[in-house]
Nucleic acid binder design. Sequence first.
DNA 1: TAGGCCATCTGGTCCT
DNA 2: AGGACCAGATGGCCTA
Length: 189
Amino acid sequence: MRSLEMTTPWHEEEEDVEVEDMEITKHRDDLTESSSDEATGRKIARRKNGGSASSGGGSSGSTTRRRKTCISARERNLRRLESNERERMRMHSLNDAFEQLREVIPHIKMERKLSKIETLTLAKNYIMALTNVICEMRGEEKHYTFQDVDDDSAVDLETTTDDNSREQNNNSMFQQNLESSQENLMNSR
DNA sequence: TAGGCCATCTGGTCCT
DNA sequence: AGGACCAGATGGCCTA
């Protein structure tokens, strides 16, 4: 478990807290304007308007002031903002990867896109199905069995019966797809 | 309205 | 030292 003790919260610097809040808001304005992603801009805008965005630990509303550190509060703010931007970019690239994964996983089309946990679960099942096909082609025993929905998935705890049946459909679709492509492969030889 | 999912911020820790 | 990664917190949106 992480320690909730913060060593040097960035707002507990030599400058007044309120001044720093103003500055961080200004920087967020800049980032919002420079961002090409509208959704990102909206999210940041929301943060500006409403959310405190304070995480657990030191930012619990304390207005105590401390005098120390070799870098200025302004510099610290700037680094925080740069760090936020990098983190946003990192999460965007992660989401891009999820999107690419969604595109290559055969699944029953839904009106809504697959959630992240669904995407990972389907990907796992697809890999298992592919592994089974390889085993079959080698004349080995299948590694995995698809019985209903697997029991250790977080999805299973939260999904409805419809979702469960959809996942079963997806699994059987894996099998059908793989069997037909297996036949094609055999025929082409 | 509750719950699921998500984006973002944030500070701590790890890695180069 | 600085960036990447991680996990907790928060609040918005959507759906049943």
